[in-house]
Amino acid sequence: MGTLSCPFCKTEPGNIQNAIKASIYLKAVLPSLVDLVKLDKPAKDLIQSANEKIFFSLRNGDKTFLKIENGEVSYSPEKADNPTIHILLMSPEHAVQVFEQGKLPFLLKGFTRISFLKKNFDALTKRLEYYLKGPQNYTEEEKKIYAILQLKTALRSAEVLAEKEEISKKILAGTPQGILKVGIESINFTAYFGYVDGKWRYIDQLSGQNFSSVLILKDLETTELLLTNKLDTFAGLGLGKIYISGIIPIIDNVGLVLGRITQYIS
């Protein structure tokens, strides 16, 4: 398996740090494979003929179930079916080593699928890494994929922090409950993050107009500047590169949580 090398990660000691990192990998990074194969043809080609159900389980921790079928990937946070491959991560530290340093996981099931793991899945995760690692000499289409994957992964990571990180919990405890719509105007992309069923979570699609705040980035250039921490967001608002409306404290506070992701992955 590719290292998924922390586009993101600043390895630091500490169980909590590793527990949160492991969760981000399992609940935010791996689920981004769903979007990757939808958006990126080379990624889709890698799994076009595959029919696998991969179950990642962190002992006493998070689970990720990926179903690869008909050139698509679907994700579930629980075991949704009988897996063809079961990868066990012994501890958060082990999970971080697997995802960042390429250490071998424990394969509990799927010994006959090692070839798929080593070739196709490894290449698939490397393709994800290509986008999550940050801006490169992307084509115009790749720029779009980069922006979408980064934003969705960030919003999914925010869900992890909302559940597991003390400071994020405190920030969100003082936040009005509602749903934030995040979008990129030029490519007509939207995703959501909000308080639903008693917790703050990432929402892929929202039926109706039930959001309480809006944060729209004008174009891909603005999005890249924001993602690479090169954008003065207040200046961006005044210049019309960013548009906000609705309950602004939700935007402020979710922004604070999003800003904390780099404490774990960079």
Binding site: F234, A235, G238, Y243, I248
Partner: peptide, 23 residues
């Protein structure tokens, strides 16, 4: 635009355009 080149936020603090919707 001039301000953003030399001042963080362009205009900072409670005079910032941020809560003025739409700016």
């Amino acid at each position: 635009e001039r301000a953003t080149r030399v001042i963080p936020c362009g205009v900072y603090g409670h005079f910032s355009p941020a809560p003025c919707v739409p700016t």
